[in-house]
């Protein structure tokens, strides 16, 4: 008998542990400096600004833009290799279990205020915005909008990313008087974006993940093929749709459980009254059982 009580608690614990793990350089917060150790050459699987005082690794989206926008290298083999490796193993499990900014949105959404269901007419087309941001701000602009030296800005990080503002901007500005002198329009603009996203998180589940995150957009392509999979046992399913009502990412669980939009939070699994939904890295055994059953029948 599956113990469903622990599903949400286990996820929260893993999210907290990973947030601390990716930002474990505590001395950075005390001194107002960033980590400069060798692990900064490695990409972490989550959207975690490398200018966060605690960050021990590199943000893959920031790294992607810096390689694309640099003078020498154009095709980002190294960063893309990391993204593909994380994607094929985890898919959007990274969004649901590992991402610190996902955790912040989850915690804000737990605050008991009335929740807003975004109408499908707005929600469905808006889900494509993250792919547009990925193509435009992360790939094309760093490639083509360069300065006289052939180097470009990280356009997504500069104009959109709220994670850099929250994890890097606010603590560094707070701890360094010299940086406070540089405050201006860009900082105010980014703070506004951050506040809007955080406030929206109170009313709408994970608005950044649904509509804006380019890393989630990349990992979405791996959801159907990743080692971590969700599985619906159609023989057990009674069609009650409790899974779809429980899904805050509005995934049609009974039709497409490994949808691009599924962040593997397992709320559907928790809600299913007949244990028809499974998830994990090793679903081969349950697939084989179904195949064997078909053969004997």
């Amino acid at each position: 008998m599956k113990n469903k009580e622990n599903i949400s608690r286990t996820r929260l614990i893993i999210q907290i542990i990973m947030a601390v793990f990716f930002n474990g350089y505590v001395i950075g917060f005390a001194k107002g400096k960033i980590f400069t150790g060798a692990t900064k050459a490695l990409c972490v699987p989550v959207l975690n600004c490398y200018s966060c005082p605690g960050a021990l690794g590199s943000c893959p989206i920031g790294a992607l833009q810096s390689v694309l926008g640099g003078r020498k290298h154009r095709f980002p083999f190294y960063v893309l290799g990391f993204i593909m490796l994380f994607g094929i193993v985890f898919g959007r499990f990274i969004c649901g279990f590992l991402c610190p900014f996902g955790l912040i949105q989850d915690l804000l959404h737990k605050i008991p205020v009335p929740k807003i269901k975004v109408p499908n007419l707005i929600d469905k087309p808006l889900r494509f915005l993250k792919y547009i941001i990925l193509i435009l701000f992360v790939i094309l602009m760093p490639l083509f909008f360069t300065n006289d030296f052939g180097i470009s800005s990280p356009y997504f990080c500069k104009w959109i990313c709220p994670v850099g503002t929250l994890e890097g901007g606010i603590p560094l500005v707070f701890l360094n008087e010299s940086l406070r002198n540089g405050l201006g329009f860009l900082f105010n603009f980014k703070i506004t974006i951050l506040i809007v996203i955080l406030v929206l998180s109170l009313f709408i589940y994970r608005p950044f993940c649904k509509y804006l995150c380019p890393l989630g957009a990349l990992y979405a392509f791996f959801n159907k093929f990743s080692l971590y999979q969700m599985e619906l046992d159609k023989e057990k399913c009674i069609g009650c749709k409790k899974c779809e009502h429980a899904c805050k990412m509005n995934v049609k669980v009974t039709k497409n459980i490994n949808s691009f939009e599924c962040i593997r939070c397992r709320e559907c699994e928790k809600a299913c009254p007949v244990n028809a939904i499974n998830s994990g890295f090793n679903l081969k055994k349950s697939e084989e059982k179904c195949e064997n059953k078909e053969k004997t029948v």
């Binding site: 960033i34 980590f35 400069t36 900064k40 050459a41 600004c49 490398y50 200018s51 960050a55 690794g57 590199s58 920031g62 790294a63 800005s153 990280p154 990080c157 500069k158 990313c161 850099g164 503002t165 890097g168 901007g169 560094l172 500005v173 940086l179 540089g182 860009l186 900082f187 603009f189 980014k190 703070i191």
Partner: peptide, 10 residues
């Protein structure tokens, strides 16, 4: 990654 990204932090 080892320099503060001024653009990233606003």
């Amino acid at each position: 990654a080892v320099k503060i990204c001024l653009e990233c932090i606003g």
